[in-house]
């Protein structure tokens, strides 16, 4: 199996049991009550100030990317959802990746290992658009940005969502 060759991503997360409980409680959203942190604090049996401090710490540690409204792109008419995959020179990916990741129509941008000979792509960028034509147009923008460093790319459109659930912590 390929996966044995490169270890999958793992970070030692500096979180304790209360953080885990807080993540479990909020991964499907904050309570829509006038004082949501107070509501969470009551559920957890801690002070609301501590709830906020823990959230702030998880933001600082990068465990929380952002806090806000999470739109359902698909329901709002963004039906394109194309996973674009790119073969770019390994020695330049550190410079190119952040430029692609900063584009406003790219929702995820990762370096991943190549699996040669079948899979030469080392840069993944999830592109959103209202339809496939709009996604194709945005993929062309990425190709122009990469120029000669685009050694080949493909766009994989999703045809079906077979499963989509929240974050699981295995606890």
């Amino acid at each position: 199996m390929n996966s044995a060759a490169t270890p999958t991503q793992q970070t030692n997360s500096p979180i304790d049991e209360i953080d885990r409980a807080l993540i479990q409680m909020t991964q499907h959203g904050l309570p829509l009550t006038p004082r949501p942190y107070h509501t969470l604090a009551e559920w957890l049996g801690i002070e609301s100030g501590e709830v906020v401090r823990r959230i702030e710490r998880m933001v600082a540690d990068g465990i929380i990317r952002r806090i806000g409204a999470v739109p359902n792109h698909y329901a709002l008419g963004y039906r394109g959802n194309g996973m674009s995959v790119w073969n770019v020179p390994a020695e330049k990916i550190g410079e190119l990746g952040p430029r692609i990741g900063a584009l406003d129509f790219v929702s995820h941008c990762y370096q991943r290992p190549r699996r040669l000979p079948d899979w030469p792509y080392n840069l993944f960028a999830m592109v959103h658009g209202r339809d496939r034509a709009e996604v194709a147009d945005k993929v062309a923008q990425i190709a122009r940005l990469l120029g000669a460093d685009d050694h080949g790319h493909e766009v994989l459109f999703s045809t079906r969502i077979l499963k989509k659930t929240g974050l699981r912590l295995g606890i």
Partner: peptide
């Protein structure tokens, strides 16, 4: 269904593998 949720967006890679 326009909003999935209002709350924190977790970086999945930061917890576990």
């Amino acid at each position: 269904g326009a909003v999935s949720r209002v709350g924190p967006v977790f970086r999945t890679h930061s917890i576990g593998a």
